[in-house]
Nucleic acid binder design. Structure first.
Length: 811
RNA sequence: GGGCGCGUGGUCUAUCGGUAUGACGUCGCCUUCACACGGCGGAGGUAGUCGGUUCAAUUCCGGCCGCGCCCACCA
């Protein structure tokens, strides 16, 4: 058997990606008798291209899935696309030159659907291009009818469980752009500002001051706080103070959080000046908010003379008015961080609106317990989850004032405003385009006219259901029962607090258990200097380009080079390393196969000493690789396979066994048979160890030779190697290691004399004390050293090989 | 400001109680038979910094410095 001279990764990778798909190598079979190993991977958003971070993270998850497949488990490995939400709207608006807010929603939604289908095709190609072994028949989209149905079903279920509520909540708006903005559209900005000291009068006539950076919200002031321990003010707690300009009396509360040393130690609260104000109002429910700002970003009639102004205008006006009456006592310049709208850099405003919430703050303890039951890889990532849960202050707001998303299955009674929920049989439903089913009446006033909820759900409300979406939740109960919880979630460390946490929440609320057993958390990809890749820095490298130049196997090899959870800089040299390995594998296989035609018979009873050494080393590599993959530490299998293949197998074994293969007639038949069997077994095992990392080149070699001999049609469904316990022979390993040292010493000698490695040695002397150990390997050593004679004797000019062992080389 | 992580030869990285792994680069040598997309050999690090625990620390603990990520409108 002769392999072609060169391996073309371009041809082979394209060929195998297609063949795997055609042959259904990765197809999930619901009737399988094998234990199922399932994986919940992130659905990438369709609004972008695949980037190196994706390439790394999905490769890392794929290593694990490929390992489990070979271990004899049956993978359930679906792939999804996340295509609802703000990012997609932006993407479509930009691409088509439209504005979602300026066109009829059904038209916009239709447009988004069309564009995302197109984008998904390209993304699918990118993911296939790096050799992901998911089953594309299990593909889902977070906006398709099934996902929508699942998401709406989840909402109805939460309603039934009393977890859904509609309540007043602050919404972030940009007063400049006059629009509602999302968390992700905000950024931090260090701002030069003034801390304004304003005087108020207490009930008892006492004058005191508070300090604020936001005097403009004064018309909305409803409360006042001091620290309960603060001797200056504690006697005022429970009394009232009069806010100037609006002459409103507001209550003074005692709050631990009010720091005596900041400003004057007194603070005012407005509805709403910021999240702290909202918190304060939540803590003091007896105080009613006075909402002075509308969604337009302008003050309304409740702001009195400031009506119609924006914050910026009001700040000016309020300060002037305060100055005029002498209430502005001091202005102290300070720097502080504020949230601004990323596009126009305007400070954001908070206005109160009705929103849908999933009530879950009471379950913090449960969430912490759940987090503790998950198997985190790496373990320290759990802390991020814990800190997030402990820091939660809000229920989960799931409504968004957007267009392209999963609609709420909710109408409101046109008469009394009472919410009416869709029936589960109607799902998926768009309440803006349909009515509740016939005969439905308002539960409160018996009204028969309804208005559909216009808001759509937050994208996390749906993507937090990926296990339910993939596993046909409430559609195929038997299947779901068997498959849930899933085995593994692969997740980036940046979205532990969103995607991972939200998925845990939904799963606990719906099913009362965790969605998966294990989680593996991946890191980021940075540029060669450790900086995050971003368009604005111009340091973005595209995986498609990398695959084109170096091959998917090389890309994956790079992705395996860091430990799980670590950030990895993209360096071209690392891709070259992978490419070299692929070439080396090809060449080594080419050599082996020319000698395997004559392989006859099965496993020998006893191995030749050198072969026993190699098998001992092979066993170690197999054990290390298996342990590594089982612990999600894919870089360990990589190192084990690398080391065995490159050092032990190529550099030493092949060089030492060559003579036995080329001059077979000069050796006993059983030694030759031993060599051929070892060669076959070691090569096959090497291919298998590398198969999860380098699926293409290993499959190519396997298919050209081993597929015909072994039972599996693809290396990826062949059995993961087990150590050959019957050949575990410590003495042989020890002897082989020593023989390798002797050969290395001869090489070193030749190198130091500027001799070719092929140069003949007249006589090689090995210290007689090692005769017992090395004599069985004498012929192999002699052949590798190209020595005409080999003798166990005291060397004339000794070269130190190891402690206690010296050799002499006579050329 | 809070949390988490990281800081190892020129560059990236493994190890994580007994002076350190590998890759790339670099220098020298080697081309008849798997591979010059190669082989062999050499040089190069006292593991950010200070201090503590220990017979022994890169590895454990604490301070500091630097970097990254997540969170947070201390009015």
């Amino acid at each position: 058997m002769e392999l072609p001279k060169n391996y073309s990764f371009k041809d082979a990778e394209a060929k195998w990606q297609k063949a795997w798909e055609d042959l259904g190598v990765y197809r999930f079979d619901a009737k399988t008798k094998q234990p199922v190993y399932s994986c919940d991977t992130p659905p990438p958003t369709v609004s972008g291209k695949m980037h190196m971070g994706h390439a790394m993270a999905y490769s890392q998850a794929d290593f694990i899935m490929r390992f489990h497949r070979m271990k004899g488990e049956h993978p359930f490995y679906p792939f999804g696309f996340d295509d609802n939400g703000l990012a997609t709207e932006r993407f479509v608006e930009k691409k088509c030159g439209v504005k979602g807010s300026r066109m009829p929603r059904p038209d916009f939604v239709k447009l988004c659907l069309r564009e995302t289908v197109e984008a998904e095709k390209q993304l699918k190609q990118s993911w296939q291009g790096i050799g992901i072994s998911c089953d594309w028949n299990l593909q889902y989209r977070t906006i398709d009818d099934w996902s929508m149905k699942t998401s709406q079903r989840s909402l109805l279920d939460l309603h039934k469980k009393g977890r859904l509520e509609r309540k007043e909540a602050p919404l972030v708006i940009c007063p400049q752009c006059q629009t509602v903005i999302a968390q992700v559209e905000m950024k931090d900005k260090e701002l030069e500002s003034f801390l304004n000291y304003i005087e108020v009068e207490a009930e008892n006539g006492e004058k005191l001051q508070f300090a604020t950076t936001r005097p403009e919200v004064l018309p909305a002031c409803v409360g006042f706080s001091v620290n309960p321990e603060d001797q200056r003010y504690k006697h005022l707690i429970g009394k009232k103070v009069k806010i100037p300009l609006i002459d409103r009396w507001v209550p003074v509360k005692g709050d631990e959080e009010t720091l005596p040393e900041y400003g004057t130690g007194a603070v005012y609260y407005c509805s709403y000046g910021g999240t702290d104000c909202i918190d304060w109002l939540t803590k003091h429910p007896d105080v009613k908010p006075v909402l002075v700002m509308d969604v337009s970003g302008r003050y309304n009639e409740r702001a009195g003379k400031y009506k119609g102004m924006t914050s910026k205008e009001a700040r000016q006006a309020v300060l002037e008015d305060l100055k005029a009456i002498g209430a502005l006592k001091k202005q102290q310049p300070i720097k502080h961080a504020v949230n601004v709208h990323e596009r126009c850099e305007t400070e954001v405003e908070y206005v109160a609106t009705k929103q849908w919430f999933i009530r879950y703050l009471d379950l913090k303890e449960k969430f912490l317990e759940a987090g503790a039951k998950l198997n985190w890889h790496p373990a320290h990532m759990k802390v991020r989850y814990d800190n997030w849960v402990k820091g939660l202050k809000w229920d989960w707001c799931v409504s968004r004032q957007r267009f392209f998303g999963v609609p709420f299955p909710i109408w409101y009674c046109a008469k009394c405003g009472e919410a009416v929920f869709a029936d589960e049989t109607e799902l998926p439903v768009d309440p803006t385009a349909s009515q509740p089913k016939a005969g439905q009446r308002c539960g409160k006033c018996r009204g028969t006219e309804f208005v559909g909820e216009k808001d759509v759900m937050d994208t996390w409300a749906t993507s937090s259901l990926t296990p339910q979406i993939a596993l046909k939740w409430r559609e195929d109960e038997k299947f779901f029962g068997r498959m849930f919880p899933m085995s593994l979630r692969a997740n980036g460390h940046d979205i532990i607090t969103f995607w991972l946490f939200n998925t845990v929440v939904k799963s606990l609320l719906h099913e009362g258990k965790l969605p998966w057993k294990d989680v593996m958390i991946n890191g980021y990809v940075t540029d060669p200097y450790g900086e995050k890749m971003s368009k604005s820095k111009g340091n973005v490298v595209e995986p498609n380009v990398v695959v084109e130049r170096f091959g998917a196997d090389a890309l994956r090899y790079w992705a395996a080079s860091c430990s799980l959870g670590e950030d990895l800089p993209y360096q071209e040299k690392d891709l070259v390393t992978g490419q070299k390995l692929v070439t080396k594998l090809w060449n080594a296989a080419k050599f082996c196969l020319t000698h395997l035609d004559k392989l006859e018979g099965g496993k020998p009873e006893k191995l030749a000493p050198l072969d026993a050494w190699l098998m001992g080393k092979l066993n170690q590599a197999v054990e290390a690789a298996t342990r590594g993959f089982e612990a999600y530490e894919f870089h360990k299998p990589k190192m084990a396979a690398d080391h065995f293949f490159w050092k032990e197998f190529c550099d030493n074994y092949l060089e030492m066994v060559k003579d036995r293969l080329y001059n077979a007639q000069a050796y006993p038949a059983e030694d030759v048979q031993s060599a051929r069997w070892t060669l076959y077994t070691a090569l096959l095992t090497i291919l298998k160890l590398f198969a999860p990392l380098l699926p293409h080149v290993t499959e190519e070699i396997y298919s050209l030779y081993f597929a015909g001999k072994e039972k599996a049609e693809s290396i990826h469904v062949s059995a993961w190697p087990e150590p050959f316990q019957e050949f575990a022979d410590e003495k042989a390993v020890q002897a082989g290691d020593l023989a390798v040292l002797v050969v290395a010493a001869v090489r070193q000698f030749k190198s130091s004399k500027s001799l070719s490695l092929g140069a003949e040695v007249k006589r090689l002397s090995i210290d007689a004390r090692e005769r017992r150990l090395l004599e069985p390997l004498a012929r192999d050593i002699q052949a590798a050293a190209r020595a005409k004679e080999l003798a166990f004797e005291k060397p004339a000019e000794p070269l130190q090989v190891a402690d206690g062992l010296a050799i002499g080389v006579n050329v």
